[in-house]
């Protein structure tokens, strides 16, 4: 994973709440077995509308998405994170995120910055008044700024640490292999296994 310290890019005002992961990328785009190329599915049905924010320059080259509360609810599809990244987004700002989406974003290197609803309102207004306005998201100081305004944002300490250092979770965990093996050795015998196959006939 790439390190994330700070990013500056065009802000995109997405004036919607409850943007579920089916809206971010519909299921029909989930059939692929590859890890990249999901940008065509991003907000697919909304992008059919010429007035949709991502169809209007300069928002179409945005890299910081500003959305209403409960962004990324619903399905666990990590493809939602990949689609945002493949399009070019580096960060999403919202008052509240779906838990699984937030976890997926942290794994894949997309920053989720949680702010108060009033901050989102202010950013929406600023981005609409001044299209092309850039937002800086500074993970080191946990602050974001747009023009003269600056606001703190929330992200948990551990995700911040991993993003700042670009760490791979699996390698971190495998460093504790001995502890995993010890735990495994003490598991009760009644816990089920999928092998050998048992069936109702």
């Amino acid at each position: 994973m790439e390190r994330f310290e700070t990013h500056t890019g065009v802000g995109v005002p997405l004036r919607r709440s409850n943007v579920d992961t089916d809206q971010i990328i519909p299921a029909v785009y989930l059939k692929r077995v590859t890890r990249t190329g999901f940008e065509d599915g991003l907000f697919n049905s909304w992008r059919l509308d010429p007035g949709f924010v991502l169809n209007r320059p300069p928002y179409d080259r945005g890299t910081v998405l500003v959305a209403g509360p409960d962004f990324g609810t619903g399905s666990s599809r990590e493809h939602a994170v990949w689609a945002l990244q493949d399009y070019g987004f580096k960060a999403v700002i919202s008052p509240r995120f779906g838990d699984i989406f937030k976890g997926n974003a942290g794994k894949a290197g997309l920053l989720t910055a949680q702010v108060d609803e009033a901050v989102v309102e202010a950013l929406w207004q600023a981005l609409e008044d001044r299209p092309g306005l850039e937002i800086t998201v500074d993970l080191t100081s946990r602050r974001l700024s747009a023009g003269a305004d600056s606001h703190p944002f929330l992200i948990d300490d551990y995700t911040r640490y991993r993003l700042l250092n670009g760490l791979d979770d699996i390698s971190l965990t495998l460093a504790h292999e001995a502890e995993i093996a010890a735990f495994e050795a003490a598991r009760p015998s009644f816990k089920p296994t999928t092998w050998p196959i048992r069936t109702a006939g």
Binding site: S76, R77, E78, H79, V81, I100, G103, N104, K107, A108, D169, I170, T173
Partner: peptide, 9 residues
């Protein structure tokens, strides 16, 4: 539920 990175993990 978990995402694909976590599935791999």
């Amino acid at each position: 539920g978990i995402g694909t990175s976590e599935v791999e993990h």
